[in-house]
Design a protein around this nucleic acid. Structure first.
Length: 421
RNA sequence: GGAGGGGUGGGUGAGCGGUCUAAACCGCCAGUUUGGAGAACUGGUGUACCUUUGGGUACCGCGGGUUCAAAUCCCGCCCCCUCCGCCA
């Protein structure tokens, strides 16, 4: 949610910033509603002030036994009350329209974010050796089925397409990845959290998944709960409506959760196997920070995520996303991508974002450095650390030799074997 | 799911239709005092919005309603506690 005061103060500047993300954005209606809102508040509060004074008079009169005068005053005040009721109704309408329109706007992009479309992203750096392009890599889905690590057919039977089953050493490898990531992040000072996997609409509103992106979510109508598409949506609500102590910041959390995404729409052949799923596993990093430190913390978050891939010895590159490719709540997003050889392209395994005060404003998450300071909105940051399924795929495709998979060294104690089979 | 009890400011907790500003205690902040600290004493101590200084409005779990007037009465919902039922 943007600060309405900011729009009020310099509408043209805000509009120009937002149009870098979506050229159709127009703040005219919001500005008009905001002015109407202020006018209504001024009027209705004046009337309420008079009503309150009158009500007190009535009380005094009744106490002193002036029944007659009291009744006359009550009679007089009926008109006032009618006006208040009418204006309150209008105010409510204006407020809900204004809130709705505001809730659809994206965050202001950070100055360092390139303006443009998907393909305008900037590759900041890469790590490790890119795979030789001419090599004949077997697709991870084939390898997984051949070695009895993955079962797509039975997954489809039980739930549907894009719900794979991990089996035997496949399940162990997946669990080892999760375990390795969790323990690494915990060692780096992140507090582990096991959150609910379903959450109410308010929570997804704070995350800014709702109202705009409801179609991506699985929904349990009977209970009015949504399945989480990412732990970000859950963790951001951890301190909803709180005023945090400045000394406690940054607060760093890590959570492993399955993630559920409807992925409505069709996807190409190249996204077979584990690349795009309705349910996948992800270790998520989340931070609550002061406004001053959030961009430094974003860099640290990114490094924390990168360390995992370095430990697994997987080549990756880091990309700064352009304005039109970021999630609504993000001010700046940096992706980590790994190369999937059989598909011949890079895929995102982590998306690290600074949402500044966008989510904090929605969730009234504030901080106060000193007792006398006014509360300020915190900045929230999130990043995968990391999503496992594409890494699982990469491990299979890179490390498959002579019918065997060589397990990365750091995972061996957790999987309990050096090779599969 | 059923029955009963309850949700009040940072904490404990009073108030249950009308002394504007929610009592009291604890905590916290400032001052006095002290060599310094503690204790004691004095004063202060929520958030948001509107506003021309001054001030005003709203908020006692959330949302409606009744009334000139609601923390207080009525309706719906959420959450917590106790018991019963079901269940890993």
């Amino acid at each position: 949610m943007l600060d309405i005061q900011k729009i009020r103060a310099d509408r043209a500047a805000v509009e120009a910033q937002l149009r870098k993300r979506d050229s159709t954005i127009d703040l005219a209606e919001i500005t008009a509603l905001d002015q109407r809102r202020t006018a209504l508040i001024t009027m209705v509060e004046e009337l309420k002030s008079r009503r309150n004074t009158g009500s007190q008079r009535v009380g005094q009169l009744k106490k002193t036994g002036c029944e007659q005068e009291a009744n006359e005053l009550i009679e007089e005040m009926h008109g006032l009350v009618t006006q208040i009721t009418a204006l309150d109704g209008q105010l409510r309408d204006v407020n809900s329209k204004l809130d709705h329109l505001l809730s659809l706007l994206p965050n202001l992009p950070h100055a360092s974010v390139p303006v443009g479309k998907k393909e305008d992203k900037i590759i900041l750096r890469s790590w490790g050796e890119p795979s030789p392009i001419d090599a004949h890599y077997k697709n991870h889905a084939e390898i997984g089925e051949e070695l009895n690590l993955l079962d797509f057919k039975r997954g489809a039977m039980i739930a549907g397409t894009r719900f794979p089953i991990y089996k035997g050493l496949g399940a162990q490898l997946e669990m080892a990845l999760i375990q390795f990531m969790l323990s690494t992040h915990i060692r780096n000072g992140y507090i582990p959290i096991i959150p609910p996997l379903l959450a109410n609409p308010e929570s997804f509103f704070v995350a800014s998944q709702l109202p705009k992106f409801a179609d991506d979510l699985y929904y349990c109508e009977t209970d009015n709960l949504f399945l989480t598409p990412t732990a970000e949506s859950l963790l951001v609500n951890l301190h909803r409506s709180e005023i945090l102590r400045g000394d406690d910041l940054p607060l760093k959390y890590v959570a492993y959760t399955p993630c559920f995404r409807r992925e409505a729409g069709t996807y190409g052949e190249e996204e077979r196997g584990l690349i795009r799923l309705h349910q996948f596993n992800k270790v998520e990093l989340f931070k609550f920070t002061t406004p001053e430190s959030s961009y430094d913390e974003l860099e640290h978050l990114l490094v924390d995520a990168e360390m995992i891939l370095q430990a697994l010895n997987i080549h990756y590159r880091v990309a700064l996303l352009p304005t039109t490719d970021m999630a609504q709540q993000a001010s700046k997003t940096i992706d980590i991508e790994i190369f999937i050889p059989a598909q011949g392209r890079y895929y995102e395994v982590s998306s690290c974002s600074n949402c500044e005060d966008f989510q904090a404003r929605r969730g009234a998450i504030r901080c106060r450095s000193a007792v006398k300071d006014k509360p300020r909105f915190v900045h929230t940051l999130n990043g995968s650390g990391l999503a496992t399924s594409r890494i699982f795929a990469a491990i299979l495709e890179y490390n498959y030799q002579d019918g065997k998979i060589i397990i990365p060294e750091v995972l061996r104690p957790l999987v309990g074997t050096e090779t599969i089979p």
